[in-house]
Computed example of a mutant assay.
Amino acid sequence: MSLLHLHLPLSQFKSLNLSTPFLHGTSAISTKPSAPASHHLRPTYLPPIRAMRSLQGRVICTTNDKTVNVEVVRLAPHPKYKRRVRKKKKFQAHDPENQFQIGDIVQLEKCKPISKKKTFLAIPVPKRNAPKQPTQELGIALESESSSQV
């Protein structure tokens, strides 16, 4: 349906002004959007994604002051044979108190760069082979002990 078929008074169309400052070049073009796009904003209730922020490895060198070299071993599939093989990578980590010795297991936490190659902080990991707490005896004699008494 075109404007000719509408029965509107022509006075409405005469009030329209087609000249704008933008058409004559007097208006500056704004590069910033007038309203922020809501689909680009990150929701505040979701935690930030922290991928590969921590690694675990063994200390292999402690000669530098406040720095330890840590070897991280991971299993990855071989590209041709599809069998899992060990991949090793060495990282330098910050040890502010020089507390780690060669052979210690440490956890590497990502932090801001301390030097050109140091972007991890070494954190101690408790040993797995910690001595177990002795279990309390139930006070019941074993079958082998009771048979020897009879």
Rank of each mutant, 00 (worst) to 15 (best):
I140M: 06
P96A: 00
A76F: 14
H39L: 12
L4P: 08
S11A: 12
Y81D: 06
S34Y: 07
C111F: 01
D104E: 01
Q56E: 09
R128Q: 12
G25A: 04
T44Q: 09
T67V: 15
G103H: 05
D65E: 12
D95I: 01
A35C: 14
R83H: 05
A35K: 14
N129E: 06
Q56P: 04
L4R: 11
F100T: 00
L6K: 12
E137H: 08
H40L: 15
S15C: 07
R53P: 02
H5C: 09
Y45L: 15
H5D: 10
T119I: 08
K116I: 04
S27K: 15
Q136S: 10
L46R: 11
H94W: 11
L6M: 06
I102C: 02
K87T: 11
F100I: 01
N98F: 01
H39Q: 05
F13R: 14
R128L: 10
Q12L: 13
P134Y: 02
F91C: 03
S30R: 08
V59E: 03
Y81Q: 11
L41Q: 15
F22Q: 10
P43K: 14
R128W: 08
H5Y: 06
T44H: 13
L16V: 13
L18P: 05
D65V: 11
L108E: 04
S34E: 09
Y45H: 15
P48H: 05
H24M: 03
P48E: 12
K132F: 04
I49K: 10
D95R: 00
F22G: 12
K89A: 15
S38K: 12
T67A: 04
Y45I: 13
A28K: 12
P131A: 03
K90C: 02
F120K: 00
I102P: 01
R128P: 03
P9F: 07
T135M: 09
I105K: 10
K87H: 14
L6G: 02
K14F: 04
P79L: 02
I114N: 10
V73K: 15
L23W: 10
T26S: 08
P36Y: 12
A37N: 08
H39M: 10
T31R: 11
F13L: 14
P113V: 07
P124C: 02
K132M: 04
Q107P: 00
A28R: 13
Q12W: 06
K110Y: 14
N17A: 04
C111P: 00
A122Q: 00
L10C: 03
N69I: 07
K116F: 02
P113I: 07
R42N: 10
A51Q: 12
K112L: 10
A93D: 02
V72S: 06
H78N: 10
V85H: 05
V72N: 04
V73F: 08
K32V: 11
T119D: 05
F91V: 04
T135V: 15
Q101H: 09
H94D: 01
F100W: 02
A141Y: 07
G57I: 03
K82A: 09
H78W: 11
G139Q: 05
S27L: 12
P113S: 11
R58S: 05
Q136R: 13
Q56T: 14
P36E: 07
A141N: 08
S38N: 04
T63K: 13
L108H: 06
Q99D: 03
I60F: 03
V59S: 08
T67G: 01
K32E: 11
N64F: 01
T119V: 12
K127C: 13
